[in-house]
Design a protein around this nucleic acid. Structure first.
Length: 469
RNA sequence: GGCGACGUGGUGAAGUGGUUCAACACGGAGGUCUGCAAAACCUCUAUUCACCGGUUCGAAUCCGGUCGUCGCCUCCA
């Protein structure tokens, strides 16, 4: 059984889904006003790892990730680009999905968009007004009254009375009773998109969308809510307050927050410009699988420093896995199956699962994989595996990779030219024409194909770029 | 100012009271194999876990203090 550390209580406890065998997870997704940086992806990939592990463990998972397609930045961005918020959001959503596919993020089961859930948000806001947790201001805005919710601040361990109200408090346009009250609904303003609704005209605040969409798709109470630590306050604090105030039910069973991805020793954030994007990293020649590895290989609650060196190390590790897969693919040996192999594989599989069960201890899980890698390489060198043994090992690796998602695609077709070069080289080797063989090896290398000569004959694999440039 | 996380080798990082507890990965040195190369394998690369003090038969692991780093308190994954 998997154990996870809940931010709210600080406890690490077994995951017991509200519905037996079915885990409901909500992840705070991207605001689509620009390219999603890899810090964001770190947070999404940690959720991806969790979802993959739960599924491989035999649990059914419903994973919802919201798309914020209406907020101040989108409005500003659209105005600056002379386009509509829909067009801007569509454009960046497409980029997000493409980037997500590149780093092999599992596609969430539902990707709800905020603008598609205005009714649900309005319903929540109406309830909060009815119950006295919210109030209107003259400009048509509606705020949540923090003073009405005693538990406010529990998640972030902040005392509402102690919150430092800085100098830059409210350059805000909206008058409210208490500066710490947060907007559920923003009154209409010239030049801003506005919806005519039962609570008046205007547009939704940010926090309400996650309450509305998570509860719409997962129910008023669900198992896991994930996000980056920077969302703990105020975003998730506000979500809890408004959701529980509206339903009277516990909102989320387990809160999971991942630490920041850092770069050059500081948090990666759009506001400081300290960001790197998937597109530019891949354009620089980094393998998407290496990028994924670099983003998931550090435990989610520990800071992960991204650098050229860290991706290069990740690429080297992935390359080592690739070499094993290529070796197993090519391996042929007519001999009896190893009697003890099954136990070796089962032990590794169990240890891998147990490591991830322990609050997603990915480092320990990777250690299991590399321990297995060495054991198998020894047997390959020693020719002590049968052909079907090699296939069994590959099956196990593929199974573990259902969680990691870093192994090469099994169905990688070679183009005809490369295929011909490989055949020519094999023929040259057969007649011991080393100069032709070496020349063909260079030609293949120039096309990104590494060839190696082994007792199983010539074998190839795609070269990973380990560093940029 | 308030709150919190963290500080393990050249780098990343697991380990949170004791029999392989200093994993695993990257990097480095040497070696084996190989037509060459690559890959792989083998050996070596932290008597030590920021520092000081304490608890204990015993601590990287618990307690106290010091220093340092990062983060939250404001949009932010």
């Amino acid at each position: 059984m998997i154990r996870l550390q809940d931010t709210l209580t600080g406890e690490t406890r077994p995951l017991e889904p509200l519905e037996s065998g079915h885990v409901r997870i909500y992840s705070c997704g991207p605001t689509v006003y620009g390219p999603t940086h890899i810090g964001n992806f770190r947070s999404f990939l940690f959720a991806d790892l969790l979802v993959r592990h739960l599924r491989r463990s035999g649990l059914r998972v419903t994973w919802v990730m919201n798309i914020t397609d209406i907020d101040d930045k989108i409005i500003k961005g659209a105005a600056a680009a002379g386009t509509t918020i829909e067009a801007l959001a569509d454009r960046w959503l497409a980029v997000f999905l493409a980037d997500a596919a590149q780093v092999r993020m599992t596609r969430p089961d539902v990707l709800p968009r905020a603008t598609g859930h205005i009714n649900e948000m309005v319903a929540l806001i109406s309830t909060l007004l009815d119950r006295g947790y919210a109030y209107r201001t003259d400009d048509g805005s509606i705020f949540f009254r923090i003073a009405s919710w005693p538990a406010y601040g529990r998640l972030a361990r902040l005392d509402p009375d102690q919150l430092r109200v800085g100098e830059r408090v409210e350059s805000d346009e909206y008058a409210k009773d208490n500066v710490r009250d947060f907007a559920l609904w923003k009154g209409p303003k010239p030049g801003e998109p506005s919806w005519e609704t039962a609570v008046g005209a205007g547009r939704p605040g940010w926090h309400i969308e996650c309450s509305a969409m998570s509860m719409k798709h997962l129910g008023p109470s669900f198992d896991i809510h994930t996000g980056g630590v920077d969302l703990i306050f105020p975003h998730h604090e506000d979500e809890i307050a408004q959701s529980e105030a509206a339903t009277g039910l516990p909102f989320v069973r387990t809160w999971l927050h991942c630490a920041h991805l850092q770069m050059s020793g500081a948090k990666m954030a759009k506001s400081t410009g300290n960001i790197a994007r998937v597109g530019e990293i891949l354009d620089a020649g980094v393998s998407p699988r290496a990028l994924r590895y670099a983003l998931i290989a550090v435990h989610y609650r520990a800071a992960n420093n991204y650098s050229d060196e860290s991706v290069a190390a990740a690429a080297a590790a992935v390359d080592r896995l690739d070499a094993l897969v290529a070796a197993l693919d090519a391996y042929r040996e007519e001999r009896a199956d190893s009697p003890d192999l099954e136990a070796v594989l089962t032990t590794a599989d169990d240890a891998f699962g147990a490591a991830l069960d322990d609050d997603l201890n990915v480092s320990a899980a990777l250690a299991v994989v590399f321990d297995l890698l060495r054991v198998i390489n020894r047997r390959i060198d020693g020719r002590s595996l049968s052909t079907s043994d090699a296939e069994r090992v590959l099956q196990t690796l593929r199974s573990l990779d259902q969680v990691l998602g870093v192994l090469p695609d099994p169905s990688e077709d070679l183009d005809d030219e490369v295929r011909r070069l490989l055949e020519d080289r094999a023929a040259a080797r057969a007649r011991r024409d080393w100069s032709a063989s070496d020349r063909l090896r260079d030609e293949l290398a120039a096309r990104g194909i590494a060839v190696e000569d082994t007792r199983d004959g010539q074998r190839w694999r795609r070269q990973l770029e380990t560093t940029r440039g």
